[in-house]
Design a protein around this nucleic acid. Structure first.
Lengths: 174, 174
DNA sequence: CGCAACATGTAAGCGGTTACATGATTAC
DNA sequence: GTAATCATGTAACCGCTTACATGTTGCG
């Protein structure tokens, strides 16, 4: 499942612009599926070309036209098939953990710094998720609610473990 | 931090072949940093070219020569600098969660199937981590022990949440 | 006055995945 | 006999990241 399919999925919930989708990626999707404009805009163009979405241009003054995308019937069918064939991969790529593996080659300051950083990032993710829960729990689909819950559970677990065990990290004796 | 740097880090613990490193990637690194032969072998060649590692060819009968790589002094220095400059990113890319977001567009069977799949994968990761803990806790660096612990904590949390909340996933009424 | 939000896009580049290529040995 | 393990590599491809390009409105 690539950015394109996720965009199509988001559009199945109602029309939106690329800019809108970006915000959705940044809020409830941030903890498990990142996407920048450089992925989103080409994805939407490609979707439109395949007629899986319609695009309505809304002129504005001083800004580029808003391009409001809406899923088509063909789009819904395509999405259905994509969901059927989706392989449920879940990949983590953690430079944080990769670095910590070699904490015995680092200075205490360096090690503390990256652990603190990670803790801050986790705090931020949790804030974002809590915000999403309090702002729009009602207009979230059950799947989305579940996904936000997973994010909370996993982030809290990581935070707790890191806080309780960081003292075990031995650093270079120099 | 890329595959190349992680390979160098692994070699800081002692000489090894590409094949050996692959096994390490599959055991204790599997849950947060995947790498295939297609990444590892070119990484080692490049490392050797930069003289960050030495390569000793050990002829064998019937098999290609073993190429045993050993980190050099320059390699250790390079690694030290790489660890200093490492940005502690932690990225997740989950097609599983992306799919589950749209559970309301899937059939009950499909949804159950991917959730079960995920649970099996988690079980396997946990087994691998437990094995690593019981086999070689003693020759693991403290950083590595910490990382394995994070893997356990996070995987167990995800498993628990998924098992306890999967019933909330509503599926298509067709 | 400067920054954030609004709004869309292109293009180069990079890094990793996947598929291909080869082949002996050992265990079930 | 057939699958897994040992053992190394190449090359095409694909998708995402990053940097660049442009410009207004409104808030503090």
């Amino acid at each position: 499942m690539d950015v394109k399919t996720v965009c199509l999925g988001m559009l199945s919930d109602g029309p939106a612009t690329g800019y809108d989708l970006k915000k959705q990626f940044e809020s409830s999707f941030a903890h498990f599926f990142a996407a920048g404009f450089g992925s989103i805009y080409p994805a939407l163009s490609s979707l439109a070309e395949q007629e899986l979405v319609d695009c309505e241009r809304v002129p504005q003054d001083g800004k580029p036209d808003r391009k409001v995308y809406e899923i088509t019937k063909a789009g819904r069918e395509f999405l259905g098939r994509a969901l059927e064939n989706s392989s449920p991969a879940h990949k983590v790529r953690s430079e944080f953990l990769a670095t910590v593996c070699f904490s015995h080659l680092m200075s205490r300051e360096q090690c503390d710094s990256i652990v603190d950083h990670r803790l801050q990032d986790l705090e931020q993710i949790l804030n974002t998720l809590r915000q999403a829960e309090s702002n729009c729990l009602d207009d979230m689909q059950p799947g989305m609610r579940f996904v936000v819950g997973v994010g909370r559970a996993v982030s809290e677990a990581m935070m707790k473990y890191v806080e309780e065990n960081r003292h075990l990290l031995v650093t270079e004796s120099k």
